[in-house]
Write a protein that binds this DNA or RNA. Structure first.
Lengths: 145, 145
DNA sequence: TCGAATTGCTCAGTGTGCTGACTATTTCTG
DNA sequence: CAGAAATAGTCAGCACACTGAGCAATTCGA
């Protein structure tokens, strides 16, 4: 059977998009703190005191991945992770002073990076792209909740 | 500083899109053969005899990742990898009989899966989404070639 | 032609991300 | 209230994906 054109395959394109993004992230935002790590810092800035399961739902990562990721952030003392005295199963998470500082710094940089990343498109197209991706991803996430 | 809305961040959306895709891939296409592996099989179906560097450019993965990936495919005897007698640096790659069979089977399944994946959008929107992603990813890839 | 640069691959190390199995704790139910 | 079910987290194992370092083979240039 003949080979297919991968540029019509959303999965392949999604991977390329993410790959391109992480390259630019390393150059323009941070080499130490990755994009998923930023997502975690951002979620904890918004809602301090979350446990890991709640956090994993917020940033759309599973519990194992969150555990690793939080452990790294805790190791760098950007996140504080303590056992909930009310419920011994939960880890309660919040940003440290330093974590908050890092988050603040990255917010400005990611804004700048996103502009550069989307620069090949005009403003209407940028809005369309984000909306369409969100619809497809959202629909798929809903299927398996 | 206040937290930002990650749903306006293309990197975060790209990750979610890819994650949703790989979930559906596992359910509708294959549990053994991943989407990047399919990309490799597809490239080798189109151009047998490629070396790993050329392959890595075709599927937009770096040499190390390709090496791992090809090793796994070779282990499953879907790909044949032999040292080029003309140029002792190169590995010459091609599909085995079995690799070709697997590719053929997955082509039909991925087509079906892509339809389901993009079903939340109408046909115009689907075309737009693919085109916009390709433009952003392509532009970024060009920057660092 | 011989040394230097280039090229292709491999390897170690790190991070992301999943599944499935296991542990500990809490909650629910008879 | 005791046993069962549900919940939160951890751990092992696998795959993807990158960087940077190193090795072997080829090609280029003085």
């Amino acid at each position: 059977m003949a080979a297919v054109d991968l540029s019509t395959h959303p999965g392949h394109l999604a991977r390329r998009l993410q790959q391109a993004h992480s390259l630019l992230w390393g150059a323009m935002v941070s080499e130490e703190t990755t994009s998923p790590q930023f997502a975690v810092l951002n979620a904890l800035e918004e809602k301090p005191g979350m446990d890991q399961r709640t956090l994993s739902e917020h940033v759309h990562l599973d519990r194992s991945t969150i555990a690793d990721l939080v452990a790294r952030l805790a190791g760098r003392e950007l996140v504080e992770r303590v056992r909930d005295p009310m419920d011994g199963r939960r880890n309660v998470l919040k940003l440290t002073e330093q974590g908050s500082r890092v988050h603040r710094k990255l917010v400005t940089r990611t804004a700048r990076m996103n502009r550069v990343f989307l620069a090949p498109l005009d403003v209407d197209e940028q809005e369309t792209l984000l909306r369409l991706i969100a619809r497809v991803a959202g629909a798929a996430e809903e299927l398996r909740g």
